[in-house]
Amino acid sequence: MAPDTDPRGDTRKRILDIAETLLLTRGFNGFSYQAISGELGVKNAAIHYHFPHKTDLGIELIQRYRRRFRRFTEAQADLDAASRLDAYFELTDSYYRRHRQVCPSGILSTEFHTLPCAMQDEAALFIEEMRAWSVAIARQGRDGGVFHYAGSAEAMGAVMFSALQGGLQLARVDAELLGTLKYQLKTLLGIAPALPERGQQALSLPVEG
């Protein structure tokens, strides 16, 4: 889910872009308006002009994620389950490649009980949309005879969602973990390829220098 583009490069969008990077690397509670204004080269008053309270900024960030995610899933409407699973894996990998960021649903669920109530409501909707998408992939694959697993599609979708979300956090410590998780999820779905001779380590993502 690539960031929204705006050729005008207006201040409001730049604030959101910087806040997004800070959210995914430090968490919502880990940055202040000072961090945004310092990078932007403006006074805090410029941030407050667009977002009077930090809660306003947080809500807009989540709503922007939801719009992106909607476009992302709509673009996959005609794909088969295996292709949608690959897109899911690529989405996870993309956050790792961007300075080992945690995915937005991961950071929002980690900080959920410390977020303002209005942000909690918006975050819960976003997280449920992500989970439902994972369930839909699991169900489509089994209904189409591509995936073969025990249990319900709801349970398998929850396993996929939680494993990849948590995997991004643990990958900050263990760079090989995402590759291992993706292979194991495919094993659970009954579609895992044979391991190369060198084992699962060959499936891990390259470590950034």
Rank of each mutant, 00 (worst) to 15 (best):
W133E: 13
S105C: 12
R66C: 10
A138Q: 06
A132Y: 01
Q165D: 13
R97K: 10
V102P: 00
H99A: 11
E111K: 09
D56Y: 08
L168T: 08
P116S: 06
T110E: 14
Y96N: 07
P104K: 04
M160Q: 12
D121W: 00
T110S: 13
D56V: 05
L61T: 01
T55I: 08
H53Y: 14
G145D: 06
A153G: 15
E74W: 07
D143Q: 14
R142K: 12
G167M: 12
R142C: 04
K54C: 06
E74Q: 15
Q76H: 12
S152C: 03
E128N: 15
T73N: 08
L61I: 07
A77M: 08
D86F: 02
S83Y: 02
E60A: 15
R98E: 15
A77E: 14
V135T: 13
T114F: 13
L168S: 09
L61M: 09
E60Y: 00
M130A: 14
A138K: 02
H113Y: 12
H113I: 09
P52V: 07
G58A: 06
V102W: 14
M119A: 13
I59E: 14
P116C: 12
R131Q: 14
T92K: 04
S83F: 02
A123W: 00
A123P: 01
D80N: 11
L91A: 12
Y65I: 01
E154L: 03
C103I: 14
D80L: 03
E128W: 00
T73D: 05
S109G: 13
I127P: 11
R66M: 15
A75I: 10
H99P: 00
G141Y: 05
R67M: 07
K54D: 05
A132G: 07
V159M: 11
